[in-house]
């Protein structure tokens, strides 16, 4: 998803980038330590998915977008101050 150098972005790519922007904006509202943590995990997730997922796998990308939007809504909650992730047998689990 993140491979375009020119500015011919597809609609789906724009959605993904907007979601990424949303996460980075939400991260700003957290205390410095939590903010770094959120930025680290979120950028890692986006970059990993951008490399692993075939750009034509629309169904999966759309699923991830929906999931991402829900997670973003959770992170926006002001009670949440940080984010941590752990690997369980290759599968990644996100918790607050």
């Amino acid at each position: 998803m993140g491979s375009t150098g020119g500015q011919k972005l597809s609609g789906l790519q724009k959605h993904v980038l907007n979601l990424y922007r949303g996460f980075l904006r939400a991260a700003r509202t957290k205390p410095p330590e939590g903010r770094r943590q959120v930025e680290l995990i979120v950028s890692e997730e986006f970059r990993r998915n951008s490399k692993q997922i075939d750009r034509k796998n629309f169904v999966y990308i759309e699923y991830l977008l929906r999931r991402g939007k829900k997670q973003l809504d959770q992170i926006k909650n002001s009670d949440i101050v940080s984010l941590s992730s752990m690997k369980v047998g290759g599968a990644e689990n996100k918790d607050t």
């Binding site: 491979s3 375009t4 972005l9 980038l17 980075l24 970059r47």
Partner: peptide, 16 residues
């Protein structure tokens, strides 16, 4: 930005 190896995710980060 594309010449210096920035992808679209990097561009978002730069703008932020």
């Amino acid at each position: 930005f594309s010449e210096i190896g920035a992808d679209s995710l990097d561009t978002v980060e730069i703008v932020m």
